[in-house]
């Protein structure tokens, strides 16, 4: 709980739209509260600008309230509005897997999801994977150990897919890993290291 609150107070040094509104806090049951524009922090009750919708997203166990246009993808909201830039935009057409996040535990392409359609689902991004700020997730550590990347751009998506397939029991052999990781492209071709990293975590039987 404390961590949750701290995160949002720290949010004051995030982008301009991430301002905590003390005026609104009392009105809402669940902290943290994130007001979404300079306008909405000044006046209340707020009416979203024409065409925008007030939505609530659950990301990495935190609650975000934000006004979005229906056409805004989850990927763009994460990166451009919430400063969660770990999720990458590669092809933006569901072909490369760089934008992979978990939605209710399922690996999904955030670039093909309209944010307005995914309220109240539990969304996890690469930022929400590690157990704490000082500790890597076992698969993150394995990617470092096994050289599971070169430039690193596809790595967050690779790791999100890797964690999902280990949890789902689809990482039992190098061939099975390759098949179930097929939605994540690595143009540096670090595939050997990626397969080794996922295989090593699966074999060690660590909780992921």
């Amino acid at each position: 709980m404390a961590e949750k609150d701290t995160y949002l107070i720290d949010g004051s040094n995030r982008r301009w739209f991430l301002k905590q509104s003390s005026a609104l806090t009392g009105l809402l049951l669940a902290p943290p509260l994130v007001a979404t524009s300079a306008q909405s922090t000044q006046r209340q009750p707020t009416v979203p600008p024409s065409g925008k919708r007030a939505i609530t997203l659950r990301i990495n166990k935190k609650t975000y309230k934000i006004d979005v246009e229906p056409r805004e993808t989850l990927l763009d909201v994460l990166r451009e509005r919430l400063d969660l830039t770990g999720t990458k935009k590669g092809c933006d057409h569901g072909q490369c897997g760089a934008c992979t996040v978990h939605v209710d535990g399922r690996q999904s392409n955030a670039c093909l999801m309209l944010a307005v359609m995914h309220q109240h689902q539990e969304i996890t991004t690469i930022e929400g994977l590690a157990p704490s700020k000082s500790q890597l997730h076992p698969l993150q550590a394995a990617f470092v150990k096994h050289d599971g990347y070169q430039c690193g751009f596809c790595t967050p998506g690779q790791i999100m897919s890797g964690v999902a397939i280990i949890r789902q029991g689809h990482a039992n052999s190098p061939d099975e890993i390759r098949e179930w990781m097929s939605g994540n492209i690595c143009r540096c071709a670090a595939y050997r290291g990626i397969v080794e990293a996922i295989g090593s975590v699966q074999k060690e039987g660590k909780t992921v």
């Binding site: 569901g94 897997g97 992979t100 690996q107 999904s108 999902a164 097929s182």
Partner: peptide, 9 residues
């Protein structure tokens, strides 16, 4: 067909 991500969606 597709990828695990797309099949989930």
């Amino acid at each position: 067909g597709a990828s695990p991500q797309l099949r989930n969606m």
